[in-house]
Amino acid sequence: MRAPKSTSGVGSAVRAWLGFSLLIAAQFGVRPLLAARASVDFAVIAVLFSAVRMRPGLAALTGFATGLALDALSPGSFGASALVLSLVAFGASWLKAVFFADHVALTGLFVFGAKWLFDIAMALLTGVGTGASLLVALLLWAPLSAALTAVVAVLLLVLFRPLYRPQSL
């Protein structure tokens, strides 16, 4: 039986940044084409997949920069995505040993929870609605969007393992 190959640090970092860049490109290029109430959030997947490879401070900085890029498109709520993605990335980096094992189902569950929390925080920070419309957004559309994002994240993890899990081949 062969021992698993280890990847070089530079090659691993290049593949991780390539995966991150492709997901951010999908956020700005593909997501608008799939505009729906429950849509895939490629930026959350990108931040989560990169945060598990970083220390919490650098992960929070990555989440902040990604959030600023998202906030540039919505000046009415500027800063909300940056704050929430910073917290999501920090939490993902801190909890990586618990949830981001090599188990695909746990990764999907973690992406689902992170995306749902992201949507809840964004709805509360930006004041999307009040009363019944807020409840429908938080209890119907946010979990559907989180589930769709988790399914896409698991598919990406399975299909493109070298990009999103460069530590193991």
Rank of each mutant, 00 (worst) to 15 (best):
F42C: 10
A150Y: 01
L124M: 09
A97K: 12
V84T: 10
V111I: 15
A3V: 12
A97G: 15
I45Y: 02
L144N: 03
Y164N: 07
S77E: 14
A89L: 07
L134M: 09
A43L: 05
Q167T: 14
S86P: 06
R2F: 12
V84W: 08
G79T: 08
A82P: 00
G9D: 11
V136N: 06
D119L: 07
K96L: 01
I45N: 03
S77G: 13
A60T: 05
A26C: 13
G131K: 00
A3G: 09
A72F: 15
A36C: 03
P143T: 02
F28Y: 12
G63L: 08
V98R: 14
A51M: 10
K96C: 09
R53H: 15
A13W: 08
D71F: 03
L70P: 01
A101V: 13
P143D: 04
R55T: 14
G127S: 04
A146Q: 05
A72I: 14
L34V: 06
L125E: 08
R161Q: 14
A123S: 11
P32N: 03
D119K: 02
G91R: 02
L58E: 09
W141L: 00
L138T: 01
K96I: 00
A16P: 01
L148M: 11
L22N: 09
G29P: 03
V152L: 12
V152G: 03
V151S: 10
S133P: 01
L83I: 15
V44H: 01
A72P: 00
V158P: 06
A43W: 02
G57K: 07
L157Y: 11
F100A: 10
A3R: 12
A51D: 08
S133Q: 13
A121K: 03
G67F: 07
W94Y: 15
G19F: 01
V152Y: 05
S133E: 14
R165N: 12
F90H: 12
L169S: 14
W17F: 12
L87E: 04
L83C: 12
G57Q: 11
P56I: 05
V104L: 15
V111S: 01
W17L: 15
L138F: 03
G79H: 07
G19N: 02
G129A: 15
T149K: 06
T107A: 11
L33R: 12
A26R: 06
K96Q: 13
L68H: 06
L156T: 07
